[in-house]
Design a binder for these strands. Sequence first.
DNA 1: CTGAAAGCGCTTACAG
DNA 2: CTGAAAGCGCTTACAG
Lengths: 358, 358
Amino acid sequence: MSFVERGLIVRRDDSASVTYTDIARLAGVSTATVSRVLAGSASVSRDRQERVHLAAEQLGYRPNRAARALRRNKSDTIGLVVSDIEYPPIARLARVIESEAALQGLGLMICNTDESLTRQSFYIDLLLQERVAGVIAMPATDDPQQIRSLLDSDIPTVTVDRIVPDHNVDCVLIDNAAATHALVADLLGHQRRRFLGIFGTQDATPSRERLEAVQEQLSTRSGVTLSVRTLSLGSTIGIAQATRRITSIVQESFGSSAYNPDAIICSNAMTVEIVMKTLFERSIRVPDEVSVVGYDDMIGLDLFYSPVTVADQPFDRIGKRAVELLLSRMSGDADRSQRIIRIQPDMQFRDSCGGGHS
Amino acid sequence: MSFVERGLIVRRDDSASVTYTDIARLAGVSTATVSRVLAGSASVSRDRQERVHLAAEQLGYRPNRAARALRRNKSDTIGLVVSDIEYPPIARLARVIESEAALQGLGLMICNTDESLTRQSFYIDLLLQERVAGVIAMPATDDPQQIRSLLDSDIPTVTVDRIVPDHNVDCVLIDNAAATHALVADLLGHQRRRFLGIFGTQDATPSRERLEAVQEQLSTRSGVTLSVRTLSLGSTIGIAQATRRITSIVQESFGSSAYNPDAIICSNAMTVEIVMKTLFERSIRVPDEVSVVGYDDMIGLDLFYSPVTVADQPFDRIGKRAVELLLSRMSGDADRSQRIIRIQPDMQFRDSCGGGHS
DNA sequence: CTGAAAGCGCTTACAG
DNA sequence: CTGAAAGCGCTTACAG
């Protein structure tokens, strides 16, 4: 072990670990050769290759990722920046990305922003300090300024779900217009005429595209009305308050002098959940009195008292594509234009729309 | 910037970053002093402290975590080893741990094992390569041999949910006996007499403790029967096959010549979901014909066609305690005996048990 | 309180 | 194909 010959000035406080020096000595080669063999890079004679591999194994060599990262100014870790890992579709995204990253020997660092721009900046800074090899992000907003330091770095970045207008970031997201059209068509097919749309922040791609699509689709219909409520950025109000907000939107929408929608479009699965709960508590029957549809599937949604029709975002496929794009950027082709990949939604027609898919 | 004076042998391929050398020069101090100031360690004159902080700010200094990790042989990252980040209670655990870690400036690396011992070993090795500052793990089994290299390292480790018999690992988990007693008591209160228990691998703490508790509690009751089915370790069969297994357990349990339970105890929320789905598809009414209870709450479970009674594991509190224990281990007191913290379950009595909590 | 200097474990341009 | 050597950006024991 090299510790026997290390200077005495600084002592390691943990059990000595095996280094290239140890392997080199045992294999009778230089550390440069050890590096070449273990990195599988430059060509080394077969004989030496074997000796190095054997020595490494005998000594139980374990690479030191920090040393490698320092030398190469790039770690073998990628960062995942998301709003909320607890949101089931995002958990699925994380799972897929983690699994693909592991295949490349890359670690995955999770960064949960709660859609707070402050936390988002904090995490981007942390990832820059870490010199991560790449970042997959679902930024709180589409604003490039909010992730400026990441864009200005040379760290390959791919966004998911949200298009940041910058040539340096690819994006993978579903076809929100197609998803919306399918949902609205199903509602119209069930003779729904009074729509209530509950959408998220218009500072991010999905809710903006979805709202636009609904408005466009309904604008040509006569006798059909649309009432829209948008929520502000998650961070600015917090989850508890968002829940209260949605609950009150639903409550205010029903009653003798209210809008009384016969269809509610919810921009995500949490909204679906809150809406369904509020309707249940107020004994407003789904789908008899009102249809409910949403975006994003979630485990159990098909077992609700009225199974909910949704346009699922297939985050397993989205995650895989995102990793593909990221790896491609990581392996060099950095100076090209922005790639935007659209994935088709996975429609789940269930009873909440009116039963018997139209 | 220091790049102007760096040797020419190796060129940085990215934009030059600010280092201690730059700060030291601008502040007119040594790099040692810069380190002392920015690490907030040894005492430095107020005057120099200010100059260093000012210089760091002016230059837009960003620490290099790899360099620090290499020098200290320990990174500012902790590892989280879990079976499946997509399982909602675990997603919550990850969220809490991530949030607590961020408060300490620690990154969180996610390791998803799918309960595969191979993947578990792979990830432990990765975390060792990373020289993580600590690990919180939900190991696939209680067997210390499976995480031997982690235990043999000097990396502080805390387990969650599963007790690994080794003095070097603290553990935080719920009081499985109390949870079980509460569930069984509720079932008995609703005159249930024919129990079917579907438990997970007996190689891990929770299912073992729960099964023991059920058996013990029912053994003193006359006229009450218990049929037990246990599933093997997740990895050995995979999720799809586990689903099929549970589905067929339920299907085989009902029919003229079958056991026909009037109460099903499910060892986790995924089992609850599969059982509820199978019963729904077979039109077996809950709770009229059979009660269903489980462990772990999950969003939406209260909106099921029959809201499900569960003993929730409060993973937010569990996660916080785990981080506390880990930080305490990380700050030194490593050579003490194993600490085991029991958290009380959070009972959610709902209709699936028979309505109107007994 | 402070600085000069060594060294953490790798990678790689250079010179054979 | 191979090795000697420099250097990545920090931290810290040592000597003032």
